[in-house]
C-alpha cells in the first residue's frame, strides 16, 4: 500500500502530515445587534415587502364571427421537449375534422425550447392568413 492510500484510509492527507497551513478563515468578534428590544414589549419594524407595478390594460384582438371556413393553427410550444407533447393537438385536430369539418387546422411545433420565442412562426402564420391559433399545452 502506498503512503498516499494509507494516509487516506487513516483519514489524513499527506499535506496534513506535512504540517501545511489548513486555515483561511478568521472569526471576528461579533458585536450584539444595536438596540436589542426588550422581549415582550411592542416593537416597530420596517416593512420588507417590495411593491410591484400593475400593468396597463390591453384588449384582446378582435374575435372571429365563426370558425367555419377559417384556418386555425394548432401550435405546440414544445413543453417537455421535442415531439413529447403534440399528442393533445393531434387529438384536437381529429376532433375538428370530425365535428367541425369546415375548419382547416394545421399543427406546427414551435422552434426552440418551451421558453423561447419563435418570431418566424408567428410571421408565417400571419402571412399565410392564419385566422386563429390554439397554443399550448403547458404541463
Amino acid at each position: 500500500m502506498d503512503r498516499r492510500k494509507m494516509l487516506a484510509l487513516l483519514g489524513a492527507s499527506p499535506a496534513l502530515v506535512a504540517g501545511m497551513p489548513t486555515h483561511a478563515e478568521t472569526l471576528p468578534e461579533v458585536a450584539p445587534h444595536p438596540a436589542t428590544p426588550v422581549l415582550g414589549g411592542p416593537i416597530t419594524v420596517l416593512n420588507p415587502a417590495v411593491t410591484p407595478k400593475l400593468a396597463e390594460r390591453v384588449p384582446l384582438a378582435p374575435r372571429l364571427n365563426s370558425l367555419d371556413g377559417k384556418t386555425i393553427y394548432l401550435v405546440d410550444t414544445d413543453w417537455g421537449g421535442m415531439g413529447q407533447n403534440d399528442g393533445i393537438l393531434q387529438e384536437m385536430q381529429a376532433w375538428f375534422a370530425q365535428h367541425m369539418p369546415g375548419v382547416k387546422t394545421i399543427i406546427k411545433i414551435k422552434k426552440g425550447n418551451f421558453v423561447t420565442d419563435d418570431p418566424g412562426l408567428w410571421k408565417e402564420i400571419a402571412e399565410s392568413k392564419g385566422n386563429g391559433v390554439v397554443l399550448g399545452v403547458a404541463g
Partner: peptide, 21 residues
C-alpha cells in the same frame, strides 16, 4: 411561455389566440 407567445400573437399580429394549459 404559453402566455408570452399568446400575447405576441394577440398584440403584435392581431390574431385571436386560445392558450391552453
Amino acid at each position: 411561455a404559453v402566455a408570452a407567445c399568446s400575447r405576441t400573437l394577440e398584440q403584435e399580429y392581431g390574431i385571436p389566440t386560445a392558450p391552453v394549459s
